[in-house]
């Protein structure tokens, strides 16, 4: 790597990090809404009504098995860029579409996790809640990785911004380095989350043993 590429990457770093903030925001929005709906589905699956139970089971299976990448394309194509409502033009930003698409697998995942949590809770399994938290955080890492695909529907997140930088500089060597640099940020974030998780689970083990 020569010095010009090094300085170019430094100049682009603030832009890229702002983009990475968007990745994190999209992931958190997807996790929050996905978890809420997943919780509702799990309650339905566990509830007294058989009819609701079956439909919640079906919905969980559906959400669990739809690839988020295909769904992202689907949502981007089907939901218009903007629409009129009572004489107002309402914009539908791409990052919301990406969040919706990423929330869907979260629904499937958390619905299963909540169901498992409930049954363990009934057996007085005290480690169940911390275990749920650990699994949830590991899934957050998966969703953070998947948020990179939002660039293909026009979200200006970190990969999208790296592509802009590549357009401006048009240097094949720079292209390789900036992609590696972006990958390093994802790796760093994932590792940071894992280290925090390890510390917490260590604490939990100490607490319960």
């Amino acid at each position: 790597m020569n010095t010009t590429i090094y300085t170019e990457i430094l100049t682009w770093t603030p832009t890229l990090l702002n983009g990475f903030g968007l990745n994190i925001a999209i992931s958190l929005v997807a996790m929050t809404f996905g978890t809420l709906i997943g919780w509702m589905l799990a309650s339905g699956r566990h509830g007294s009504s058989r009819c609701i139970g079956i439909s919640c089971n079906l919905a969980t299976g559906l959400f669990r098995n739809i690839p988020s990448f295909v769904l992202m394309f689907y949502i981007a194509f089907i939901i218009p860029i903007e629409f009129e409502w009572q004489d107002h033009v309402i914009q539908f930003p791409a990052w919301i579409k990406a969040s919706i698409a990423l929330a869907v697998p979260v629904i499937g995942f958390t619905s299963d996790q909540f169901l498992y949590l409930r049954s363990s809770h009934k057996q007085n399994n005290t480690v169940a809640l911390p275990m749920f938290f650990i699994a949830w955080t590991q899934y957050l890492v998966i969703i953070l990785m998947a948020s990179s695909t939002a660039s293909v529907i026009g979200v200006h997140e970190i990969v999208g911004r790296a592509n802009t930088a590549i357009e401006v500089l048009r240097d094949p060597e720079f292209m390789l380095w900036i992609y590696l640099y972006v990958a390093a940020w994802f790796l760093l974030a994932a590792m940071a989350i894992n280290v925090i998780l390890k510390l917490i689970s260590h604490r939990i083990h100490q607490h319960y043993s």
Binding site: M145, V159, L176, F186
Partner: peptide, 26 residues
Amino acid sequence: NDIFRMTPPLLNLYIIFFGLGGLASL
């Protein structure tokens, strides 16, 4: 091993196909 697990596959496709591939063809 962690590097392969904890980087987005989309980015890895870009790195190998466009990044390395671009330099290899150049």
